[in-house]
Structure formats: C-alpha cells, structure tokens
Write a protein that binds this DNA or RNA. Structure first.
Ligand SMILES: [Mn+2]
Ligand SMILES: [Mn+2]
Ligand SMILES: [Mn+2]
Ligand SMILES: [Mn+2]
Lengths: 220, 220
DNA sequence: AAATATTTTTAGACAAACCTAAAAAGAATT
DNA sequence: AATTCTTTTTAGGTTTGTCTAAAAATATTT
C-alpha cells in the first residue's frame, strides 16, 4: 500500500496544505510552493493520477483523492512527531526543527513512527502548535495557537504551557488558569502588549506579554 | 563538504566494510554485497573517483581515499547511533534495528547526530556490540562481544551488562565481576553451556549460560 | 466577439542510478 | 606461449525527476 518516493511524498503533502485554503490547487501554486517548475508539476500530476492519489483533469487543477489524503496525513504525522522529538528530546530550537523533519518524514517504517509516538507520550501538538494525526490518521481540527495571537472575544481553552517553572506555575495558580481553563481575550493594550482576559464567571485579570507568550490555547 | 546521495553513501559504507578484510575490493565483491550488477559498480566507481572518495584504476580494484574513510565513519556513526536509539529508547528488538537504521543513516544533519549522541549518553557500542565512532570519527578498534562467544583463554574486559536487575547485580557482586573486570574463559561445558572463568588471581568460578548471555566483553 | 495576456501542457533534453549483452582485459591452464 | 576461463568494462537502453522552449488552452480586456 505505501511505498512512495521522497518526491511523491513532498508533492502530496504540499497539495494537502494548499487545498485546505483553496479547495482545488493549481499548477502554478504548487510549483511555487515546491520551488519547482510548472512543467514538472504537470508531469508529476499525471503520475499521481495513475496512482489514484489525486483527482486531475488537464487545465482544471487537482485535489487529493481519499487515498491521497490518507497518505498526506501519514506524512504529516511523521513530520510533526519528529519535530516534537527534536524540540523535546534533542533540545532543538523551535525554528530549527522543520528543516530536519523535512528529511526524517520520508523514513517510512510504520513501526518506527508508532513506537516513537509511544516513546514521546502520544503528544497532540508539534512545537508550532499544529496538531499531530494519530496512528489512524485522525487529526484535531482546531489548531493550537499562542495566547498572543488569539482574536478578541473568541472563546478558547488552555491546552499547553511551554514554560513549566515554579515561578510560572505560581502566577498561573494565582490567576486560576490551568490546562482546560476556558477564556476570552477582552482587550489588548498596544503599549506593552498586555492582555485583559476573562475566565468563566470571575472578574477580568491582566496578563503580561511575557506570560501570554507561554500559554497556548485551542479555539473551540 | 558533505552532501552525498543515498546510493553513494551505501557504496562508501560497503567498501569500508569489505576493505577491512581484503585491503582492496573487487567489482564483483561489491556488486554481491550491494545486490546490484557489476556494470553498475563500475559506473559508480568512476563517479566516486572523480569525487576523490576512492582510489581506482580500471581492472585493478579500489579502496577508499582518506576522504572516503572519513565519510564512511560518519555514515557508520549515524547508523549505529540510530540502532542504539531504536533498541534503547523505542524498545525495538535486536534484529529489527538494522533495517530501519539503513534508512535513517542517510539523514545528514550533523547537528541532529551530535545531539542524538548526547541525548543517548554518548554510547560506545551499538546493540550488536559494534563500536560507535565519536563526533571526530574516532572508533574503538576492538569489538564488544557477548561472553558466550569469547574464545577460550583469550583475555577480555567486561564492558557492559545488559540486564541491570538487582538479582543480576547480586550474583555479579558475589562473583566479584563488574565493569572493567579482566577475565578469561577457561572451559566451556557443552552439557549446559556453562563457563569456567578466571578473573585476576582469584580461584576459578562457574557462570551459567543465562548469566553469560547478559555479559559483554571487549578483547584487549 | 476579438484581441491579448496568462496559465498549463507538450515536446524534447538531461543527469542519476540502474539494467543487459557484448567486448576487452587479466588470470589460470595446458 | 597459446588457449580457455573469469572478471571487468563499455555500449546502449530504461526509469525517475527535473529542466527550457514552444504550443495549446483558458481567462481577461477591450
Ligand atoms: Mn514543520
Ligand atoms: Mn520532505
Ligand atoms: Mn547495522
Ligand atoms: Mn543505507
């Protein structure tokens, strides 16, 4: 069932990401995304069509078939689990993980990935806050986002704090914020980027930019 | 300096292993090792020669240049560190690690490998007992081997015990065996595979097959 | 509805890594 | 030293994934 080349996998993953927005993807879009030429994209689309991974009619764009989507989620799972591993276990910084994961994602042993998942404690989000598909390809629909980027008045749930120091936990405890807390940002002060937030039925509190940077939330 | 294809890397590694025995490697030998055809080997040797990784004169075999040896040790380092990771952290069995490492070894980030090495605690031997080259390409010359495979009357030093249970440590303590102990196998009883060993100036002791299987030694 | 501009596909070429079959070189036998 | 056997190389071909340049289809303007 699965034994695809690095090139095929990179195309499938890129189509998956592009069609999230557009629905259907064009030749030029994909060529730009993959830093290749439109002619190369057409060649590859013909091949992926015969392999039943994409729906494609000449001149009318393409989108992934169900098979193609399943494959994309497998590759995304590998990519994000490796990113998590690199950040969490090897202490790579946030920005470094992507490039290395871009290569590691093409090592295709199913057992490797499932054991890695287990070793990492079945993490749900990669270091950029993107959800990690599970072994069956199921993926959380809502993206994890830093509290600093949450739009005003949008209800969200705290799902991760990146700094676990006792100082951090002290201030969180005092403000009654923990994993699972439902909150909304009511105001954002441009002067110092501090936030006024509302949690449940309590009075509003203010959160510094410093603190907000370490809190990740999921929109419901 | 280093950006070689998966194919080039597999050839370099295979030549390294073959020339350990032979000194110089032949076309047919290498073709057999890599399950490819002699004609393909000749093609690749021409390429590796222009890249200065091998010394090669038509019809007279080949061996790695210094550059080639350095590259081989980098690839072997990657391979064995991944094998150690798979066995130690992901609980892969002994026999499963090689195939997966055969792919992982071609991910070429130097930082990835050095951080992995650190994360693993700078292991000196892979799960098969082969030594792991360090970040500078230095490699231990003597291979680690299970006590069950040590030839009679050959002095060796205990370097690893794979079972660290308190029961195991109890029996080892009683027999005065620990990491660093110098020993020789004096006799091997076919009936139960038990061993009579001699350590330093003490009287000989007997070790069961069960115990011996968990002790690894390095010949001096 | 033409004319023009943009996008996409086709045609033809190239490098990498492999193959088979034939030729050449070297080694072993007589 | 000539013949025979074995090994190695060359010649020519295939597949995969890329490219440029030209042609065809589609979209946008006028
Ligand atoms: Mn990424
Ligand atoms: Mn990739
Ligand atoms: Mn191995
Ligand atoms: Mn390999």
């Amino acid at each position: 069932m699965l034994n695809y080349s690095t090139s095929e996998e990179n195309y499938i993953k890129a189509i998956f990401h592009l069609q999230q927005e557009d629905g259907t993807v064009t030749t030029n879009e994909l060529a730009a995304e993959l830093k290749t030429k439109p002619a190369s994209v057409t060649d590859m689309m013909k091949k992926l069509k015969t392999k039943k991974l994409v729906h494609y009619e000449a001149y009318h764009g393409f989108r992934l078939s169900n098979e193609g989507k399943k494959l994309a989620l497998i590759i995304i799972r590998r990519h994000r689990l490796w990113e998590f591993f690199l950040a969490e276990k090897l202490k790579f910084s946030w920005e470094e993980v992507h490039a290395v994961a871009e290569d590691l994602e093409h090592v295709s042993s199913k057992k490797l990935i499932d054991k890695l998942d287990e070793f990492l404690g079945f993490p749900r989000f990669d270091p950029h806050g993107d959800p990690i598909p599970d072994a069956n390809g199921r993926i959380e629909t809502s993206k994890q986002v830093c509290l600093t980027e949450l739009p005003l008045n949008k209800t969200a749930i705290v799902c991760h704090v990146s700094d676990q120091s006792s100082e951090m936990l002290e201030v969180l405890g005092h403000k009654n914020i923990m994993i699972g807390t439902r909150l909304e940002v009511k105001k954002r002060f441009d002067f110092d980027n501090s936030l006024e937030i509302k949690t449940g039925k309590q009075a509003a509190t203010t959160i510094s930019d410093q603190l907000a940077r370490n809190i990740y939330v999921k929109t419901a």
